[in-house]
Structures are given as C-alpha cells and as structure tokens.
C-alpha cells in the first residue's frame, strides 16, 4: 500500500529531475543485476531449501523470502560479499528460525517406512527415504550435509556460510553421514 508510485513534484530547475533520472537508472541497473543473480541461483537454492524442509511449497516460500531480503540489501551485498554464499546463509537462518518457531508444536516425524528389500538406488522409495532420513537429523547437521554434499561446497565455504569452524563442519558431516548410513543401509554411502 505504500507501494504506489509517487509522481515527482514539479520543482524549479533541472537538477532534481536529473537526480531522479539518475536514481531510476541506478534502480534499473540494480534490478537487472539482481535478476541475473536470481536466475543463476534460484534453482539450486530452492532445491537445497527442499532438502532442508521436505516440502516444495515451503521451499519456494523460503527461496522467495531469501531473495527478497537480499534485494532489500542488494547494494551492500553486491560489493564485497559473495552473493551465492550470502544467499545460503540467509536461507539457513530462515530455516533455523522456522525450526525454532515450530519446535513447540512440531509433529514428531512419522516412523521411517521399512526399507524395501533390494530397492535399487534411485527408485522412488530410496529417493523419499533420503529426504525422510535427512529430516531426522538435527537442523544443523542437515544444513552441513546439504551444503557440503548436495551443493558440493568445500569444508571452508560451508564453515564460512554457517559461521562455524572447519572442524565443526567435518564433525557434523561425519556424524550426519553415520546416521544416514544407519538409517538407509551401508550401500547408501558406499554404493
């Protein structure tokens, strides 16, 4: 509602008009640059959000919120930071917040379905099983695993994104993988 375009009040002299045009140009350039960033980052970010929350609608929502927050600070973000890493950090913070807000009322996850015998990797059963198994990890461990192994970021990058040390990343990875292996079977990691 505060969104309506206000027509500039007529002012004497050309300076304010020139200033306004400059501002518009800046906004056009900013929007173009921002849109290019979104186009390069959106799909991966949304998929990571899905791996974090198991829900495509929520993933879409989290992605949208992430980009909105980034746009609001884009002038600052584009200089001196890595927008890709920044977007991961905003996303994970949103996920962590959400988890905190919900933790009181969160329904305990249903028991994992029994793993069908002989299910080949990539069958729908195993695909769902991975997402379900991820959901049983702590949100911090899940974040490490998603950034490290779904997105292929280095230990150092993950550490920077999450604001923890490299050894914390390694430990959480090891703990999370051990847990996945115990839920999904040895061949999950080795196969």
């Amino acid at each position: 509602m505060t969104d309506t375009v206000t027509t500039p009040r007529p002012v004497d002299g050309g300076a304010p008009a020139g200033w306004g045009a400059g501002r518009r140009r800046t906004k056009a350039a900013r929007d173009e640059e921002f849109t290019a960033f979104v186009e390069s980052a959106a799909t991966r970010l949304r998929r990571s959000a899905y791996l974090m929350c198991r829900d495509w609608h929520l993933a879409q929502d989290l992605t949208q919120q992430t980009f909105a927050k980034m746009y609001a600070s884009w002038d600052r973000i584009r200089t001196g930071t890595n927008p890709e890493g920044y977007s991961r950090r905003v996303l994970m913070n949103l996920v962590f917040d959400q988890q905190r807000r919900r933790s009181g009322s969160e329904v305990v996850l249903a028991d994992l379905p029994d793993r069908p015998d002989g299910a080949a990797a990539g069958t729908p059963e195993l695909r769902l099983a991975l997402v379900d198994a991820l959901a049983t990890l702590s949100v911090e461990d899940r974040a490490v695993l998603v950034l490290r192994h779904a997105e292929d970021h280095s230990v150092d990058t993950v550490a920077t994104i999450l604001g923890v040390s490299g050894s914390v990343v390694k430990m959480r990875t090891a703990r999370a993988l051990a847990r996945l292996r115990s839920l999904l079977g040895e061949d999950f990691v080795d196969g």
Binding site: V38, A42, Q64, Q65, F67, M70, Y71, W74
Partner: peptide, 8 residues
C-alpha cells in the same frame, strides 16, 4: 526475481 524485487 520480480516478486523479490517487489517485496525487497
């Protein structure tokens, strides 16, 4: 991107 620009 459009939605983010509006909301942002």
């Amino acid at each position: 991107a459009l939605a983010a620009i509006a909301e942002g």
